[in-house]
């Protein structure tokens, strides 16, 4: 099931210094199927398929972990705040209930 998913990390605002608090937005293209909808063509119930855990980490140290259920929308968006401490890499690891594991990372480059 190692299907490649499109995902994106956005840091807001774009320019930041050490000590600034930035917004870390994470967006992933995922169906987030609840397991309650019927397929209109076949009439069978679609199996549940949703992201169930997400970990935000900076240079390998996790700073936010999430448990997620099917009530979150399709193509989910998660946003947390983070205080910039220096150069490094923010990594987001996520797994879904069908065992699919993926990760996405973005470099942090504070100016000044």
């Amino acid at each position: 099931m190692a299907e490649k998913r499109k995902s994106m990390i956005k840091i807001k605002p774009k320019k930041y210094k050490v000590g600034d608090i930035v917004k870390v937005d994470f967006i992933v293209i995922h169906p987030m199927e609840t397991g309650m909808r019927k397929d209109k063509k076949t009439g069978k119930i679609k199996p549940a398929h949703y992201i169930d855990s997400i970990t935000f980490s900076f240079d390998g140290k996790p700073f936010t972990t999430m448990k997620v259920w099917e009530s979150v929308s399709t193509n989910p968006y998660f946003s947390v705040k983070y205080k910039v401490t220096g150069k490094g890499k923010i990594t987001v690891d996520y797994t879904d209930n069908q065992g699919e594991k993926n990760s996405k990372s973005k470099k942090i480059k504070p100016k000044g």
């Binding site: 972990t65 259920w69 705040k81």
Partner: peptide
């Protein structure tokens, strides 16, 4: 969703 935060946030 359950979000576990730390002081780093």
């Amino acid at each position: 969703a359950d979000i576990m935060l730390t002081p780093a946030n």
